[in-house]
Design a protein around this nucleic acid. Sequence first.
DNA 1: AGTTCTGTAACTAGACTTGTTACAGTTATG
DNA 2: CATAACTGTAACAAGTCTAGTTACAGAACT
Lengths: 149, 149
Amino acid sequence: MASSQFAMAVHVLAMLANNCDERIKSGYLAESVNTNAVVIRRLLCDLHEAGLVVSQTGYSGGTCLTQAPSEIRLDEVFEAVVKTEVFGLHPNKPNPECDIGSNIVPVLGRIQDEVNLNVRQTLSGYSLQDVIDEVIQIGKTKKKKELVK
Amino acid sequence: MASSQFAMAVHVLAMLANNCDERIKSGYLAESVNTNAVVIRRLLCDLHEAGLVVSQTGYSGGTCLTQAPSEIRLDEVFEAVVKTEVFGLHPNKPNPECDIGSNIVPVLGRIQDEVNLNVRQTLSGYSLQDVIDEVIQIGKTKKKKELVK
DNA sequence: AGTTCTGTAACTAGACTTGTTACAGTTATG
DNA sequence: CATAACTGTAACAAGTCTAGTTACAGAACT
């Protein structure tokens, strides 16, 4: 299964951005993402390590963004939560006695690096604020359609 | 685990390109990739569906490329064997009563599409021949170093 | 007829992902 | 100080995916 961590992370960060001034509880986030609060807390742990959020334990605890939504780029979010490669290299070391087998892995590794870089560059074109703007825009369009009915 | 199908596919295609005039057996390919022949045959099945190879059953059977290595681009190979996304969307449908939850999925989907497109564009910059050239180049460099010793 | 292939089904082992329960530690409230 | 409401984290279950393996039917040459 392709991991949903990135999708959930962007969702959670967008929720936090929408409530900048107060600490948000994992249970509340979990309701919106439609998952368990522990899943959210695990995610927030990764986002905390990346310096994107801070949490507070105890009574009236919760989580906040550390930066303005316009300063958080999606490649940072990706980096924080996605651990897998777009494609994996060989599961077993290829036969070193074969001309191709003995030298193909570094070539594929280089291509892998280039793909990774391009993915990150694509994502760096979007800030969290861009995502929120687009979400709100879709919301407005929906409402208009409902009014027409 | 990130699937190694793409890496193995490029490896196998490079082997076929290196032996254009004869049919190559799955067992021989498996030795170079260092895996089981059935794993290779499953892979060849996908590559056949994509029109990149043809196989023949029976005595003196085996597999050949259908095109020149310079005409096979890596995005075609990727398309043929990789089924997963760079990142997955939500495992469960987000809460529709939440402003973010109700509208974030299509936004993420659009970004997903853009990432996919960029990955394919990156890979389309390489032909199978390019990979083979690079592999051979590395092989030559290695031999030089050995001679120096 | 016998040999040597491919194609494919069926199964196993291991890894990964999400979801869940449980609980220790932390912080505010009364 | 006792209680309530949080986070952080460990532990486990269920489902899915990947690669590897065995087995065998069908095809093609000798």
